[in-house]
Nucleic acid binder design. Structure first.
Lengths: 234, 234
DNA sequence: TGTATATTATTTGTCGACAAGAATTTCAGC
DNA sequence: GCTGAAATTCTTGTCGACAAATAATATACA
């Protein structure tokens, strides 16, 4: 008999398991590592993370609450589909939140907020330069999220962050379609937005945010319209 | 020894326990039966519902996800406080969603939507007549929720319903302060809103929704300002 | 061979138990 | 009587096991 595994590894703090599983699954879903429809196996996850099914299930309950996974009672649970049919309603909500949060930022931001926002913009520009798609998505979301924070309305930032997360999946498809490249234009638009926020120019903030949002929406819709045509051609 | 309890009662379908606990706790929290700060005891709930702690905990995880309860790691969990400090941000969000959903309803509603909306309005009027505070809150929320549904944007309806739920607790306090009575004026404003929606009058829908929302917000803020003064007087 | 039924296997929902961490109590020393 | 450490109680987080529900497979029959 070989030496017994006295399992010195389970150096994991009590209570940290749920969060760990939640965070990882969430990222894998939003980055399309787990594409929509992928089956989620509790026991498999339990083995993978070396823990029992109980904490796994609690993490899954959270994800289901956010609509990222679908759970059929007594049957399988899988990654939720992207709702392409109601995509335009998503974009309507996104554009509105872009406008509202940017306006509020122009109104209520403080000097230290601008520092944070500019820092995110630097990272975003670097990601575009490096053509790192996942980094672009993450830093872009962080940039706008920071603007929302500067607007100081937790309800808006909450919804906005949820929309950005939801959009991460569509955005991932979008970036992929352009070989993970992104035009410099978005970087410049971000700079303009920072400028009007710094100037406390509420009206112009609204206008630029709207243009920026509609710009992105337009690009993505063009992509999916193209894909629709390709699908039909099959 | 008396006859053994062969427990013929647990006639509860597999998988229904979580939802049952979730729904009940949620209602008790939102209706202030469980006031903010109330401790939530897992074993007590387990005994009360005659089930193990596992499904109870899953329900609690969901409630925590919605921010209705706060969970301190390894320590107690309790009903979340109402955030009076950031109340104005809540009202900003509420007013915006009132406007957006009502506008969209005026744009996109179909005849059958109006039927549903009118039905809720009848119930609301009845609740006001009967001076049934909880019914007023519920039917008022159902009324506006139906309008949001008619606007056909699931993201907006989602946020809006969350706000209405959150507001249920403040509204409950508000109604209590008026001996659970409510002026007839709100009923009339609802009728006006129905009319402009039916007319597809988007601009007017926006205006009325805004007035209606600000009306309510103003009333509630007046109440809390009064309470603040009372608190200070102590 | 195709279809309906019975059997087996897999997966989920629930349970009781245990251990880690925090709160409370006990008790020694000053 | 007060302070601080040690012991105890209590609650939470996690586990392994079992049972219900479903899916997969085998078997019987036309």
């Amino acid at each position: 008999m070989t030496d017994i595994d006295t399992s010195p590894i389970p150096e994991r703090k009590r209570g940290s398991g749920v969060k760990m599983v939640y965070d990882l699954l969430r990222d894998e879903i939003l980055d399309l590592v787990l594409p929509p429809g992928s089956p989620i196996d509790e026991v498999q996850l339990a083995e993978r993370f070396k823990m029992s099914r109980t904490p796994i299930r609690e993490a899954l309950v959270q994800l289901a609450g956010e609509g990222l996974i679908d759970t059929l009672p007594n049957r399988s649970t899988m990654v939720a589909n992207i709702d392409f049919l109601n995509m335009h309603t998503f974009f309507d909500a996104l554009v509105l939140m872009y406008r509202v949060t940017t306006k509020l930022a122009a109104q209520y931001h403080r000097p230290e907020d601008l520092k944070v926002i500019r820092a995110h913009q630097v990272e975003f520009a670097a990601a575009v330069q490096a053509q790192d798609a996942l980094a672009m998505i993450a830093t872009n979301a962080a940039f706008h999220s920071a603007i929302a924070e500067a607007g100081r309305n937790p309800y808006f930032t909450g919804l906005f962050n949820r929309l950005l997360d939801e959009g991460r999946r569509m955005l991932r498809l979008y970036y992929q379609s352009y070989d993970d490249r992104l035009p410099q234009r978005f970087v410049e638009e971000h700079d303009d937005i920072i400028a009007v926020i710094a100037n406390h120019d509420v009206e112009e903030a609204d206008r630029l945010a709207r243009l920026h949002a509609e710009q992105i929406v337009h690009q993505i819709q063009k992509l999916f319209a193209r894909e629709d045509r390709l699908d039909m051609a099959l």
